[in-house]
Design a protein around this nucleic acid. Structure first.
Length: 261
DNA sequence: ATGGCCCGTAGAACGGGA
């Protein structure tokens, strides 16, 4: 039976919970990584998700950030060895949660946005990325558990991932230092599952709420699923599900899903 | 024309997102 693993920046799980429940019911997804839950742990909707058949692992804070992994109990069982954060980077911002699920190390990540090239937040983003590389390197060595890194990377890896490359050139999300770090992740042995397959031109995962950007398909592909070498051999499909972006009160991001045999 | 929208938290013509 194939396994589906997905990532979705929901931009508030409080607002988007009904859409998440609908989406899980529609897709039967086995593992869903969420970003920007924007909920403290006390307010995490554990019961509603448990009632839907999902185990929940989460790490939140007030107002900003917040990540979670939902695990479908009847197909892949319980998550084990749940970890929060990166031991190489002391970070009050809740951006990383990881768990072993059905023999796969799943890392759910909400990469910093960076705001603007000349801001302190951009320097924080680069440091966060360097620490991620330091942490992941040893986890991708021979004999390690197959690994998937999923989330909102806040990086458009190439110009084809950008609706207007000239306008975005050297801007945050597209700058060369960020793209170099994305390539460094690939050099560690991670493969962009989406690019393993022929895809429609102008495939994006995020569209601004303003200016009817979704209708005009003015977007960026910044949500990604990267898989280790041994997992790559099991990948049969990868796609962006644009459906939820069409709903009333949508997240500005669409889910990305990978199928494994 | 450098803003437009959406969210949480306030109780703001706000900060942050991307």
């Amino acid at each position: 039976m194939p396994t589906q693993i997905a990532t979705w920046n929901v931009n508030s799980l409080k607002v988007r919970l009904p859409q998440v429940l609908d989406w899980l019911a529609r897709t039967g997804c086995d593992v869903l990584c969420l970003q920007e839950t924007k909920l403290t742990d006390e307010k995490f909707p554990q019961q509603a998700l448990a009632d839907a058949g999902y185990a929940v692992s989460f790490s939140g804070q007030p107002t900003y950030n917040g990540v979670a992994i939902l695990t479908r109990r009847d197909t892949v069982g319980e998550p084990i060895d749940v970890g929060i954060g990166n031991p190489h980077f002391d970070d009050p911002q809740k951006r990383l949660i990881s768990a072993s699920i059905g023999g796969i190390r799943v890392i759910c990540a909400y990469f910093p946005n960076g705001q603007a090239i000349d801001s302190d937040k951009y320097q924080y983003k680069l440091q966060w990325l360097d620490a991620l590389l330091t942490w992941l390197g040893p986890q991708l060595g021979a004999g390690r558990e197959p690994l998937a890194l999923l989330g909102d990377f806040n990086i458009a890896p190439e110009d084809r991932d950008v609706h207007d490359p000239a306008a975005w050139a050297d801007q945050v999300l597209c700058s060369e230092p960020e793209r170099a770090r994305f390539r460094a992740l690939q050099e560690l042995g991670l493969t962009d599952a989406f690019r393993m397959f022929e895809q429609p031109d102008k495939s994006y995962s995020w569209w601004d709420y303003r200016q009817m950007a979704f209708r005009r398909n003015r977007g960026l592909r910044i949500d990604h699923i990267l898989v280790s070498h041994d997992l790559k051999d099991r990948v049969t499909a990868c796609s962006i599900d644009r459906e939820p972006r069409k709903h009333e009160q949508p997240s500005d991001h669409a889910p990305v899903i990978v199928s494994l045999d």
